[in-house]
């Protein structure tokens, strides 16, 4: 048994932040240089009272109204986030309650960032192909803005918030997706929030309370791993990288993505980039790409896609899969 994506909705908070917002804390030349390099023009940030679960649940409610059969009979909900509502219980339970899902529905939470959407797809596919599950709701998103210091030039301008909902069901006709998933835990300290959990629970009112990113080492990891990952993924599915209709990459940095595309010998048309509109929204960048740049294409006939997530951990997760005949692919606001 294989699986297929039947619908995707992405949800953004309404608060739109433009680059000049950062000039209160970072000098305007640096703001200009970072914007040019990372490619981010606008991003959406949640208000104090809005959470990742709010964004994902709103997306799921819209999805339930639009796909045939709805989502009320899901037998698993997977919630991928690093910004949950509570230390416990997991956000999948918050979604389970708000969406009125049945008591025989399994709730699972995954603490993952930029690789998280593909990890979630992999888990959903394995649950379905194992035979005990038929319909899986994958919620993925983050409100990283809540972890940022607006004074930190390496992180402040890059990240945006978004929540997404994807419905995956059993399919006898779709080709089985091929996954490559890996971890390089030497990167633990390169992308990290030190304080606030149980290793160092107390906030110290300094940089350790906020997201820290060693940009150069993250960049290095990405350039080292991702061009090879594209080649390996194509080979795993007996393809050339240029055989994919689209290679959707986690939106981390426009300059870097263009370089990776060139290095992997992809056509620029194969590699849509939308970081200018939303920033880096962690596990939500891939569903946001599916709902915006290729939304019409995924509602047409099946085509071969590569989806690649990479980042915190370090980690990478890639899939070669057919996507098509998707019933709805939309971006909405909370």
């Amino acid at each position: 048994m294989s699986s297929q994506i039947v619908g995707i909705i992405s949800c953004l908070p309404k608060r739109r932040i433009q680059n000049d917002f950062f000039e209160a804390n970072i000098d305007s030349k640096t703001v200009h240089d970072i914007a040019k390099m990372a490619g981010v023009e606008t991003r959406y940030w949640a208000s104090e009272s809005e959470t990742t679960a709010d964004l994902c649940i709103h997306a799921a409610q819209q999805l339930g109204d639009k796909v045939t059969g709805g989502i009320s009979d899901c037998d698993a909900v997977i919630f991928v986030t690093q910004t949950p509502d509570y230390v416990l219980p997991g956000s999948s339970f918050v979604a389970h309650r708000q969406l009125g899902l049945p008591s025989d529905c399994t709730c699972l939470d995954i603490n993952a960032g930029c690789s998280g959407y593909v990890l979630g797809l992999s888990l959903a596919h394995d649950l379905i192909s194992g035979g005990r599950y038929k319909k899986v709701l994958l919620l993925a998103g983050d409100t990283i803005s809540k972890t940022l210091s607006v004074e930190d030039r390496s992180t402040a301008m890059i990240f945006g918030d978004a929540g997404t909902a994807t419905l995956i069901t059993a399919s006898e006709t779709t080709q089985k997706p091929k996954f490559i998933i890996g971890s390089d835990s030497s990167g633990i300290d390169s992308l990290k929030i030190e304080n606030g959990q149980f290793r160092s629970a107390v906030k110290t009112n300094d940089k350790d309370d906020y997201l820290y990113m060693d940009g150069a080492s993250v960049f290095n990891f990405t350039l080292k791993s991702i061009p090879k990952l594209i080649k390996d993924l194509a080979k795993l599915d007996n393809k050339e990288p240029t055989d994919f209709a689209y290679v959707l990459m986690h939106q981390a940095n426009a300059f870097m993505l263009k370089h990776i595309a060139k290095k992997a010998k992809l056509n620029p048309d194969q590699v849509p980039i939308n970081i200018q509109d939303f920033g880096n929204t962690s596990s939500a960048t891939l569903p946001l790409l599916l709902c915006s740049d290729v939304r019409e294409q995924i509602q047409g006939p099946n085509q071969p896609y590569a989806l690649l997530g990479f980042g915190v951990g370090f980690s990478w997760a890639a899939v070669s899969m057919e996507i098509g005949n998707v019933q709805c692919a939309e971006t909405v606001f909370l």
Partner: peptide, 14 residues
């Protein structure tokens, strides 16, 4: 600076 570092990494790679 940090932006020049990443740009130089890409330049050398290319």
């Amino acid at each position: 600076d940090s932006l020049a570092v990443v740009s130089t990494i890409v330049l050398v790679d290319e």
